[in-house]
Amino acid sequence: MTDTIIFVLAGAFATATPLLLAAIGEVVVEKTGVMNLSVEGMMAFAAAMAFAVTYQTGNIVLGFGLVVGASVALSLIFSILVLGFSANQIISGLAVGILGLGLSGLAGRNFENLTMMAPANLLLPVLSDLPVVGPILFRQNVVTYFAFAAAFLTWWFFARTRHGRITKVVGEEPAVAHNLGFAVIRIRLFAIIFGAVMSGLGGAYASTILTPGWSDGLIAGRGWIAFALVVFGTWRPLRIAFGAYLFGALLLGDLAVQATGFSVPPQIMTSLPYIMTIVVLAAVSRNALLIRLNAPVSLGQNFRPSK
């Protein structure tokens, strides 16, 4: 029983990682007032590409590197539509997301149902040998540490730095930011690129480290869950990290329930994270004041400097 608990507590960090990476990317984008719905497609494309490259070359760093490049390229299409052409953000995000899903099928078409070995996790000396805490906290993959560090750094960026405060103004009052001389469009562009890189890393992690393999539909809605996590965390990075960890545990629930010997239809366990997303979203959104205080005021609205 203790083993099961340790397995879930440690495993939840791993399953939370792709959610957290993508959600931290998205919260930065949304903080500047842009809603990017392409997360799911971006993650799928990145997952397929990272697996294909790593499988072919045996070089996971190359896989991640190329994914970063491709994610940036894809996010530029979104940027041109939203920032350049002032197109509706929701539809533009869906368009690029659909494109990403299609490209994932293309990148992964010769790799369907292939698997490979997971790279060894990082064993922090001494710490990883600690009882209970060691296996839970200090035997994770380096990307997992990066994801949680990114959540912390994002919190620090918005709460403690000048650039972070400027970025927030862009999302709250773009016209004011513009009049103060800040380049609204450029800041939004950087945020979109950052968001794409993070969801790309999330997808790459899912297909090369978490469950090293590719099959169509591998991401299975985790991009959408990441998108929902931003609302769940009311646009606050540390709360998003907490939410990602909870959902990570939920994604593991299937295995954990099996370990206890209960027989539950697998479809119910698979549905659980989606059902929880809806329940949690309703519970958080219900508090209109909480949302109004934390949601970027200009979220979803384009800004045209000439006006």
Partner: peptide, 18 residues
């Protein structure tokens, strides 16, 4: 590849918005 129609759909929507 079976993914081609999906790519095409994504492309159509991107071009439409532009």
């Amino acid at each position: 590849p079976p993914a081609a129609p999906v790519i095409f759909q994504g492309m159509v929507l991107v071009f439409y918005l532009a």
